[in-house]
Design a protein around this nucleic acid. Structure first.
Length: 576
DNA sequence: GCCGTTTTCGGCCCGACTGTTTTCAGTCG
């Protein structure tokens, strides 16, 4: 397979890290990081652009120099400058900068003065009390380094990221607790949590308070706080027993919008907006927008944007990957919202591995305001889930027909989650598929086929005229299982040519398609179905995670199949 | 290294907290 965008971004990030340790110009370092981010957000393959002789220097954050370096990487798989720099500075130094309290400068000193290149060597030097003798270091720092390394090995992990659903569980009680503190006017979780990234590293909480509030004290007393990392009047950092770090920032109401904007990020978005302010002779910080010493805006985020002549930009878009340019041109997307969703197109029942009955699923769907719910139990190849053969599926079809007679305000769609077998054939014969409203297909085994074979397998499956939706198209489980090797560009072209719909699976462990592929689908004009894959009535509520992900990928209601009314959907399914 | 309704050169977001320091660098977000 050609070099992936993510690989290019990784090489640029490594180069930036080492440059920083070397003490290079910080803006040069930033240029590499910007380029890395822009390339990883790209909805097209940079390798393909290079082979098509497109001018990469036209991409945001890429100039002549970096465009040439991208071409080098695409052609050789390597960044020669990085190889050279590694001769000078061992790449392991990057691990040391990941330790809390040690950044590039101190890591550089440790290397220059003591020749330290690994965590092990760092531990030994600290134990021998050599660190405290270095300039800029002393006893306290030496102790903190040992503590930090101890914690690291205890949790056996480098910087842990939490799935959004887990972060939500930790955030909600904390927000409720803070809301109840006397003098607190507003509370919001900001940061990547508010931008609805699929995983978050820490939680950023913002509070507006009345003068003299004791909110900071009360925060530090919160029962789930394991330890306090930093404490100040306006900002404190703690680590919860669960291991997640929480930063609390306290501001006055007059600054709340500016602080929310600042604390929501992303950092790259903030830099871009503040720069626009600077061009207009304004200073933007977390306290407001300032003209000289006078605060001229800051109570709401809308005010802040208005001062740089931008409309409000939704948090999910704030990555500085095109949203500011779109806002300037008045071309921001009219983002999908949960209320646009009219039904769920992948769900399971007790007939296979689900835990609720047809009737219970139908009732729960109606309660959520849906018009339809597709019942898509597993097919026979998934034996562990008691998958349906043609006979049992036939009986379920009859049962759904009978139930639909009685149901009011909701329609159950007859469907299946059909296995795509290793050779690309489907797990049940066409004569039973013919009786279904919807055929959701997916890969459940042989994840480790070579990319070429896996791609062929799925594309052959898509060719079946009954194939409606490709479910969890890459098979990834966040933090647990890598996506299987598949040529997504080819797969997408296959989907586009046959009118196949791609699923955005809303299970918080999956969120498959990943954001970059959802964006790719949108740009190629491929319809996306957001489905919960619910195995019980409660899991129907996972829909929100799918909607968040879709919003991050700029999807509008029209891009999503299940925003259609039952009548429109019927028409689309028939034309398939 | 990028970029341009002040600019093709000279800028590049901004502030809180900590620890090592007598005024600030480093780190972090």
């Amino acid at each position: 397979m050609p070099v992936q965008n993510a690989e290019i971004a990784e090489l640029f990030n490594q180069y930036a890290d080492l440059l920083e340790i070397k003490g290079a110009n910080e803006y040069r370092v930033r240029a590499y990081r910007n380029a890395a981010r822009n390339i990883s957000n790209l909805s097209r393959s940079a390798a393909e652009m290079v082979s098509g002789s497109e001018d990469l220097a036209k991409l945001p954050g890429l100039g002549k120099d970096l465009a040439a370096k991208v071409a080098d990487i695409v052609n050789t798989g390597k960044l020669p400058q990085l190889e050279e720099l590694k001769e000078e500075l061992p790449a392991e130094l990057i691990d040391i900068t990941r330790l809390a309290g040690l950044g590039p400068k101190r890591t550089g000193v440790l290397y220059q003065e003591l020749g330290i290149t690994s965590i092990e060597q760092l531990t030994e030097a600290a134990k021998r009390r050599e660190i405290r003798e270095l300039p800029g270091f002393a006893v306290k720092t030496e102790q903190k380094i040992l503590e930090e390394i101890g914690r690291r090995s205890a949790t056996a992990g480098d910087e842990k990221r939490y799935k959004l659903s887990v972060a939500e569980e930790l955030a909600q009680p904390l927000l409720a607790y803070l809301k109840n503190v006397e003098g607190v006017r507003r509370v919001d979780a900001a940061g990547s949590y508010r931008r609805k990234r699929e995983t978050v590293r820490d939680l950023d909480v913002l509070v507006a308070h009345k003068e003299g509030s004791r909110v900071m004290e009360r925060f530090l007393e919160y029962e789930d706080v394991d330890r306090v990392v930093a404490r100040g009047d306006t900002r404190s950092t703690v680590v919860l027993r669960f291991g997640m770090q929480v930063d609390l920032r306290v501001v006055a109401e007059a600054s709340y919008g500016a602080a929310l904007h600042y604390f929501t990020g992303s950092q790259a978005h903030n830099i871009a907006v503040r720069k626009m302010g600077g061009n207009k002779g304004l200073k933007i910080n977390e306290y407001g927008v300032f003209k000289g010493d006078e605060r001229i805006a800051g109570r709401t985020e809308e005010e802040v944007y208005a001062r740089v002549e931008l409309p409000y930009i939704e948090p999910e878009l704030r990555e500085n990957s095109g949203e500011i340019e779109a806002a300037q041109k008045g071309e921001l997307p009219d983002l999908l919202v949960l209320e646009n969703i009219r039904g769920d197109l992948q769900t399971h029942t007790r007939a296979t591995d689900g835990r609720s009955s047809l009737q219970e699923m139908a009732d729960a769907a109606r309660q959520r305001g849906y018009e339809y719910l597709a019942v898509t139990d597993h097919s026979k190849h998934v034996t562990v889930a008691k998958g349906l053969d043609a006979d049992r599926l036939g009986k379920q079809i009859d049962e759904i027909d009978r139930l639909n007679e009685k149901l009011d305000g909701i329609v159950l769609l007859k469907g299946i989650e059909l296995d795509i077998l290793e050779d690309g054939s489907l797990d049940l014969p066409d004569d039973i598929l013919r009786r279904l409203d919807i055929v959701v297909c997916s890969v459940h085994y042989k994840f480790n086929l070579p990319a070429e074979k896996q791609t062929e397998r799925i594309i052959k499956g898509i060719d079946n005229p009954y194939f409606t939706i490709l479910a969890h198209p890459t098979g990834r489980m966040i933090g647990q299982r890598e996506p299987y090797a598949v040529d997504m560009e080819r797969l997408m072209k296959g989907a586009r040519d046959t009118g196949c719909v791609l699923e955005l699976n809303a299970q918080p462990d999956r969120l498959d398609l990943a954001e970059v592929y959802v964006r790719m689908a949108r740009e190629m004009g491929i319809m996306v179905a957001i489905s919960t894959d619910a195995h019980s009535v409660n899991e129907l509520d996972f829909m929100r995670f799918g909607v968040y992900q879709a919003r991050r990928a700029w999807l509008e209601p029209g891009d999503v199949l299940n925003t259609r009314s039952w009548k429109e959907l019927q028409k689309l399914l028939r034309n398939r």
